[in-house]
Design a protein around this nucleic acid. Structure first.
Lengths: 339, 339
DNA sequence: GTGAAAGCGCTAACAG
DNA sequence: CTGTTAGCGCTTTCAC
């Protein structure tokens, strides 16, 4: 349909080589040739085919990205940040939203492979055998962003989730709380499920506090599960003084539930979230949260990915750990020692 | 680097044609040949090159999509819905987040053109001359989703924004409000700026109510602008009884501001949003909003896009208008006639 | 400075 | 049923 480099060459009365040369801004071309070619390009409304070029160069300038759930604010924010640096580095983004389905994840991985993307960024953390095998055999670099990869042979860019949850819990303890509830994710998720729970549990242990099993529950990171789990807790005859959730969405769900039950937050109960997504600033009371450096997460992910693409020999001996930061807002309040 | 179809052919001791045939699941292949080829594929860990195939077929099975702002919940939800149907139809998504920059939009459009995507879905509504020219000369179908395209030669899938805003305003009026404030978007945006404002204005006019200029303001659809504009209003010596915002984010910003000023919503003032994104269910009080059928918007957009791709002759004589729906929650309350 | 020609990995006549 | 071959649109030696 559209004009090809051949058409341009013919029209300009030069060889395709020359056209290619001006297309790629090479030096040794005469002004005259340059003008002729540019005129022909203009007249034919020609645009070079990235496809043909990719085939020849064995390079697509495209990064595939596996997103667990586009509707999650945390994911879309990080995606936005990834897009920003990727675009600045000249990469295009092929996105696969897998809606928590490993089948779909595998399908997208295969598509990315077929598409010969230059690299794959994975934001998902639950793998099955097929997926692991794919990673194993993949012919392009794979990097895990905001989650831990399945082994140390893959580079991960993320925070120390264990430490972050530990710090958060310890903060709560040091401000006088003891009855600290925990709403976690799936323990099969190393990063946001297991590590965060573990951080909570170890901090409790360190301070000699036995977590009350009635107040340790697990959801799916999404808002409704926070609401549901909070409701269960409020059904008990005793309540925690603070609820620490492993995602902001669950924390907000818990908050909504508490509010709808007529509780005052933080007067009657404190709530703390995890991730630091936008929603924490939007709800009232604004949500205290253990914040991930989303911008940096996206930026570093793409930078390292680029590095791995350009330099296939690149080896690393540790993950890239970014700093977490507790952002205190209104949903948490110290518990008075004598209360 | 990886094996090519030639390698497979050699290994299996057959011709490349035969390999191509089993790859594409054609009928007339003997069981024996099929087995040989499959074994070779397995052994070489071969995956077909989508690139080469695209070049040959002049079809990429890829749709490019221009997103105004990934961090907006409305956008990412619609993107998610688009992804879902696209993936079901066998299309992959190349996403360009343009962060409200027309320059970046143009860059992405050109990239999409070079990449020879099969079609482009645009969710942005502000165009300059270069962009319009691009649309004009583009060699692939272009469809506008949730916004109105620049002319009737492009297909748009969207709600009737004018009517929706009109209905919303009339609903407010019929429940006793007269001092109805309006927080709009940029009037240069036909769809969500101008049309919604116009719907508001016409409904007021129809009922003989003169909008108070102090209570008609324009922001950028984002939360902070709603907050800021609400603050300005609260600085006046008289207040509206209800604020109607042209986006949920601005409505929530207004809500936050009102709450932070000690107002009770909806007792002291009602607030209504537009879009019906998730956030409306999350804030307290939950936000009444004029809802767009997001799922359907995404689904229909891809379906029509597919149709246009498959059938280049496809013509249409009108846009695809989907139904809006007012979802009443707690942030709005009728105004008593005698108050 | 410029051009001819080979080839990236695949599909599709066409021939057998 | 199976194989030969000519491109798809580009880059890149290697000559001139």
């Amino acid at each position: 349909m559209g004009a090809s480099i051949k058409d341009v060459a013919r029209r300009a009365g030069v060889s395709v080589t020359s056209v290619s040369r001006v297309l790629n801004g090479e030096k040794y071309v005469s002004q005259e040739l340059l003008d002729k070619v540019n005129r022909a390009i203009e007249e034919l409304n020609y645009t070079p085919s990235h496809i043909a070029r990719s085939l020849k160069m064995q390079k697509t300038n495209t990064i595939g990205i596996i997103v667990p759930d586009l509707t999650s604010q945390f994911c879309s924010t990080i995606l936005s940040s990834i897009e920003e640096t990727a675009s600045a580095q000249g990469y295009n983004l092929l996105v696969g939203n897998i809606a928590e389905s490993m089948e779909k994840e595998l399908r997208y991985l295969r598509v990315f492979q077929n598409m010969r993307v230059d690299g794959i960024i994975v934001m998902h953390q639950k793998f099955n055998q097929d997926i692991l095998e794919f990673f194993e055999h993949a012919s392009m670099p794979i990097l895990f962003s905001s989650v831990k990869g399945p082994s140390s042979s893959y580079l991960s860019v993320l925070i120390d989730d264990y430490q972050a949850a530990f710090d958060a819990t310890e903060h709560l303890i040091s401000s006088g709380h003891e009855k600290i509830a925990f709403i976690g994710g799936d323990l099969a998720d190393i990063t946001s499920g297991f590590s965060r729970y573990n951080g909570y549990a170890e901090a409790m242990k360190k301070h000699g506090i036995e977590p009350d099993p009635r107040f340790v529950k697990f959801g799916d990171y999404k808002l409704p599960s926070g609401r549901r789990l909070m409701k269960e807790m409020l059904g008990e005859d005793e309540w925690p003084t603070v609820v620490f959730a492993a995602s902001d969405d669950m924390a907000v769900g818990a908050l909504n539930c508490a509010l709808d039950h007529g509780l005052k937050v933080p007067e009657d109960m404190s709530i703390m979230g995890f991730d630091g997504s936008l929603i924490t600033e939007v709800v009232r009371p604004a949500m205290t949260s253990m914040q991930q450096p989303v911008e940096e997460l996206g930026k570093k992910s793409v930078e390292y990915m680029h590095h791995m693409i350009v330099n296939p020999e690149f080896t690393f001996d540790s993950d890239i750990i970014l700093q977490h930061r507790l952002v205190e807002r209104e949903s948490c309040r110290p518990r008075l020692a004598h209360a």
